[in-house]
Simulated scan of single mutants.
Amino acid sequence: MKRTAVLFVCMGNICRSPLAQGIFSHLVEKQQIRERFTIDSAGTGGWHAGNPPDPRSIAIAHRHGIDISGQSARQIHQADFEIFDLILAMDEDNLARLRASCPEQHRHKLHLFSHYASGRRESVPDPYYGSEDGFQTVYNMLFDGCISVLEKMGLGRAS
């Protein structure tokens, strides 16, 4: 069975996309379907490449029983457009950046996270310059969205 490769993308790959990667991984592990997926995250920018997620992202994930501390930020590569089946951008700006660099034959893989998950065309806000509350808000949005993504894939309720 071919694994479904899912890539979550934000700007620097230290706040939103590592949280999404961790949440999605957690949900598929809970459903015991981890072997069906390749899950990763990346940033459209490379400023944080090699760094762990933001400590606030690590903390909010930890509060919910998810460990993302071993992740390391990376910038998206051209090969990702070939490798991944589904590429989910956290906001319109990052989606536009992905579209600008994605070969035409792979553009069908690019989606706004919330639009793909729930049909709502809204961005997952970047909590980087905000307070701790912003990280909880983002966590909630990503958790609900990841459940919806799994449901959309026909894998049932994953909470």
Rank of each mutant, 00 (worst) to 15 (best):
K2N: 13
K2Y: 08
R3I: 12
R3G: 07
T4N: 01
A5K: 15
V6W: 02
L7K: 07
L7I: 00
V9M: 03
V9L: 06
V9D: 01
M11W: 10
G12M: 09
N13M: 05
I14P: 02
C15K: 00
C15E: 05
C15H: 04
R16T: 06
P18D: 01
I23Q: 04
H26A: 04
V28M: 02
E29N: 10
E29T: 09
K30W: 06
Q31Y: 07
Q31R: 12
Q31A: 08
Q32V: 11
Q32H: 15
Q32G: 14
E35D: 15
R36M: 14
F37Y: 11
I39D: 06
D40C: 08
S41E: 10
S41N: 00
A49S: 13
G50I: 12
P52Q: 05
P53R: 03
D54S: 04
P55Q: 08
S57F: 10
S57C: 11
S57A: 15
S57Q: 00
I58V: 15
I58N: 03
A61Y: 08
H64G: 07
I66G: 01
S69Y: 09
S72T: 12
A73C: 13
A73T: 08
A73V: 09
Q75M: 10
D80H: 10
D80P: 10
F81K: 01
E82H: 14
D85I: 03
L86G: 09
D91Y: 03
D91M: 09
E92V: 08
E92Y: 11
E92H: 04
N94F: 07
N94A: 09
N94I: 05
A96S: 13
R97I: 05
L98E: 08
A100T: 13
C102F: 06
E104L: 15
Q105R: 15
Q105T: 11
H106W: 15
H106M: 07
K109G: 05
L110H: 05
L110W: 01
H111N: 06
H111D: 00
L112K: 02
F113T: 00
F113W: 09
S114I: 03
H115M: 04
A117K: 06
S118A: 14
G119Q: 06
R120M: 14
S123D: 15
S123W: 00
S123I: 02
V124T: 00
V124A: 09
P125I: 02
D126S: 04
P127W: 01
P127G: 02
P127E: 10
Y129D: 12
D133F: 03
Y139F: 15
Y139W: 14
N140H: 09
M141I: 11
D144G: 01
I147M: 13
L150E: 04
E151M: 06
M153Y: 08
G154K: 13
G154N: 06
L155T: 05
A158L: 07
S159K: 12
